[in-house]
């Protein structure tokens, strides 16, 4: 692996956003994901390789998370570093130089403002080569439908943290299916399960970001 790609991968794993970022303390004053990605692009490195480096970093932080060696704050810092990389890669996505697997529209369901899980899923799915359209939090059925109108053929992801809001998923899925019968919808969030996903006629349930990637790649 190119040394620069290796360094970008480490920045993603450690959550080093840019040179000015104070975190992590042992990387203070060093270039971060932002500067290194710019340099890689300037050096003519294939953006697909940069994206691959990101995924290596994400995989490592994900493994640490599974072993309870990293927690959500660390994941969020990695997500922030990943965002810095993606800002540089965006023109290549738009020009088609980096091939995307498809479009994924994601948001928390109506009434639900809890976005950590949604953010982490969006980040991992994007890093896996999908074009992610993040609608944010408290997304109504109408907003999901408008996004599908704008991005035909997309797959929709919905999350909910609360039992109180999870019930809104069924209404949103019904609304989506009424206008776009063929649209696939996957769901996730703490109170959900495969059984509940089946009950509300979702096309899949993912317990974690990698599960969402597996579902998407399987469609």
């Amino acid at each position: 692996m190119n040394d620069l790609i290796g360094q970008i991968s480490i920045c993603i794993e450690r959550g080093k956003v840019n040179k000015a970022a104070p975190y992590p303390p042992d990387m203070r004053e060093q270039d971060g994901a932002d500067e290194l990605t710019k340099q890689a692009i300037d050096d003519g490195i294939d953006p697909n390789e940069i994206l691959h480096g990101c995924m290596m970093g994400m995989q490592k932080i994900g493994e640490k998370f599974s072993r309870n060696e990293a927690f959500v704050p660390e994941l969020l810092m990695s997500a922030k570093a990943m965002t810095a990389v993606m800002a540089h890669l965006k023109p290549f996505f738009q020009s088609g130089n980096v091939k995307r697997k498809g479009k994924f529209v994601i948001g928390t369901v109506a009434g639900d403002l809890h976005d950590i899980g949604k953010k982490l899923v969006a980040m991992v799915v994007e890093g896996n080569g999908w074009d992610v359209i993040d609608l944010g939090v408290d997304v109504s059925a109408d907003k999901f439908i408008a996004a599908i109108d704008e991005h035909p053929g997309c797959i929709v992801g919905m999350s909910a943290l609360l039992t109180t809001t999870m019930v809104n998923m069924e209404k949103s899925i019904q609304g989506i299916r009424a206008k776009h019968p063929g649209t696939k919808v996957i769901v996730g969030g703490a109170p959900l399960s495969t059984e509940y996903a089946n009950k509300i006629h979702a096309d899949g349930y993912a317990a974690d970001p990698q599960g969402a990637v597996n579902l998407l790649n399987g469609f």
Binding site: G15, A21, P22, Y23, P24, V72, P73, L76, M77, K80, H114, D115, I116, K119
Partner: peptide
């Protein structure tokens, strides 16, 4: 905001 405060821990 939840995400922001969790990153404040480091930043």
């Amino acid at each position: 905001g939840v995400s922001t405060v969790l990153m404040d821990i480091f930043e």
